[in-house]
Design a protein around this nucleic acid. Sequence first.
DNA 1: CGCTTGACACCGT
DNA 2: AACGGTGCCAAGC
Length: 103
Amino acid sequence: MTKFDIAVYELIKLIPSGMVTTYQEVALRLGNRAYRAVGTSLSKNPYAPKVPCHRVVKSDGRVGGYGGLKESEKKIEMLRNEGREIEDGRIKDFERRLYKFGN
DNA sequence: CGCTTGACACCGT
DNA sequence: AACGGTGCCAAGC
């Protein structure tokens, strides 16, 4: 557990239910381009579901990994339960559902 | 230290 | 559109 991890978790807790954001958005909000590092931190997320890491997806609208796996139906189902429609691993109307952190 | 590994992103074929 | 290579940054060993 590092400061970086904490920072990531704190940001992700701000994502409203039903919204999603990207690894890139999180990294940019932290002031760098550590999107890979963001994913690494989430893969170790000890606070699910307090930290809704399932709401963090790839910048192209694809769902991405969850639970330490590259692919996860679990993540998709959770997003569907929040109202997102997902087709073939990709969120429909992704751009419109994207939550951006103000700086 | 230096090298490798990711729940990623971007660019050129 | 699909692939592969390269860049990015924190962690682990």
